[in-house]
Amino acid sequence: MALHPEFPLLTDRLRMRPFTRGDVDAVFDYRGREAVARYLFDPPLSRDECALAIQQRTNQTGLSEEGDRIVLAVETRDAGVLVGEVSLIWRSVEARQGELGWIFHPDHQGRGYASEAANALLDLGFGAADLHRIFARCDARNEPSWRLMERLGMRREAHFRQHALFKGGWDEEFYYAILRDEWLSSRHPGDF
């Protein structure tokens, strides 16, 4: 399976598109914050680090082989404001599995944007990508993230306790997942 979707992906309120060099300042506005980096592997990013990350993301727009990822800027359709990013990573060719991820600007949280964007990527993953299982993971302390996973219909499959050192302390991580059949049964006819 190879997947090279046509962009932008549209929802009622959002446009998901490949990143461009013009996105550096908007991404730095959230990726440069300690509160955003708290649960990410990266520390807060400098503007130069954001520019490098954007440069890498401009080519992450399709799935051709295991490990490939689609990373998209999420912006509002009405005002064109970049509010965050979503990703779909092809984790296993043989088992047809993917990983879903997201990072959203704190100023735009609580409006349902992450749910709307993640739903669109689940549709892509279980539709055109024909994945069997999609999982997501987060730090156990990141309640907004695992609550989002639950709203998406994902189930908690694992709670890894003190399994790795993370930013100077022991990490606790939740894994959530949903199967293609479960996702399809939750959708309305005509969603795909």
Rank of each mutant, 00 (worst) to 15 (best):
Trp102Val: 07
Arg133Val: 13
Glu116Arg: 13
Arg137Tyr: 13
Ile89Cys: 04
Glu116Ala: 08
Leu124Phe: 10
Leu124Trp: 08
Cys138Leu: 07
Pro106Thr: 10
Glu85Met: 07
Leu100Asp: 01
Ile103Pro: 00
Val86Ser: 04
Leu122His: 04
Ala117Asn: 06
Val83Phe: 01
Asp123Leu: 14
Arg111Val: 02
Gly101Ser: 12
Asp123Ala: 15
Leu100Trp: 00
Gln109Ile: 10
Gly127Phe: 06
Leu122Val: 10
Leu131Tyr: 06
Ala118His: 09
Ala129Lys: 06
Trp102Asp: 05
Ala95Thr: 14
Gly101Tyr: 09
Ile103Tyr: 11
Glu94Arg: 14
Pro106Tyr: 05
Ser92Leu: 00
Tyr113Lys: 10
Gly127Ile: 06
Asp130Gln: 15
Leu88Val: 05
Ala114Asp: 01
Gly84Ser: 08
Gly110Leu: 07
Gly112Ala: 06
Gly84Asp: 05
Arg91Ile: 01
Phe135Glu: 15
Arg91Tyr: 00
Gly110Phe: 02
Gln109Cys: 15
Trp102Ala: 14
His105Ile: 02
Glu99His: 02
Val93Phe: 13
Ile134Arg: 07
Gly98Tyr: 03
Gly98Pro: 06
Asp123Ile: 09
Leu122Glu: 01
Glu85Pro: 00
Leu121Pro: 01
Gly125His: 10
Asp123Asn: 13
Glu85Asn: 11
Asp130Cys: 12
Tyr113Phe: 15
Leu131Arg: 02
Ala120Glu: 11
Gly84His: 07
Gln109Pro: 10
Gly110Trp: 01
Leu124Gln: 03
Ala136Gln: 10
Glu99Leu: 00
Ile103Lys: 13
Ile89Lys: 15
Ser87Leu: 14
Ala95Ile: 12
Gln97Glu: 15
Asp107Tyr: 08
Tyr113Pro: 13
Ser87Ile: 03
Ala128His: 04
Cys138Thr: 13
Glu85Val: 02
Ser115His: 14
Arg111Asn: 11
Val83Glu: 00
Ile103Gln: 13
Leu121Phe: 12
Gly110His: 07
Trp90Met: 06
Ile134Tyr: 10
Leu131Cys: 09
Ala128Trp: 00
Phe135His: 14
Arg111Phe: 05
His105Leu: 02
Ser87Asp: 15
Ala117Phe: 03
Ser115Asp: 08
Val86Met: 05
Phe104Val: 05
Ala136Pro: 00
Gln97Ser: 13
Leu121Gly: 08
Gly84Phe: 04
Arg133Glu: 12
Gly125Lys: 09
Gly110Cys: 08
Phe104Ser: 04
Leu122Ser: 01
Arg133Met: 11
Trp90Ser: 07
Gly127Asp: 06
Gly112Asp: 09
Asp107Trp: 09
Gly101Ile: 03
Leu124Thr: 05
Phe126Met: 13
Ser87Asn: 14
Ile103Glu: 12
Ala129Glu: 03
Gly127Ser: 01
Glu99Tyr: 00
Ala118Glu: 08
Gly110Glu: 03
Phe104His: 10
Phe126Tyr: 10
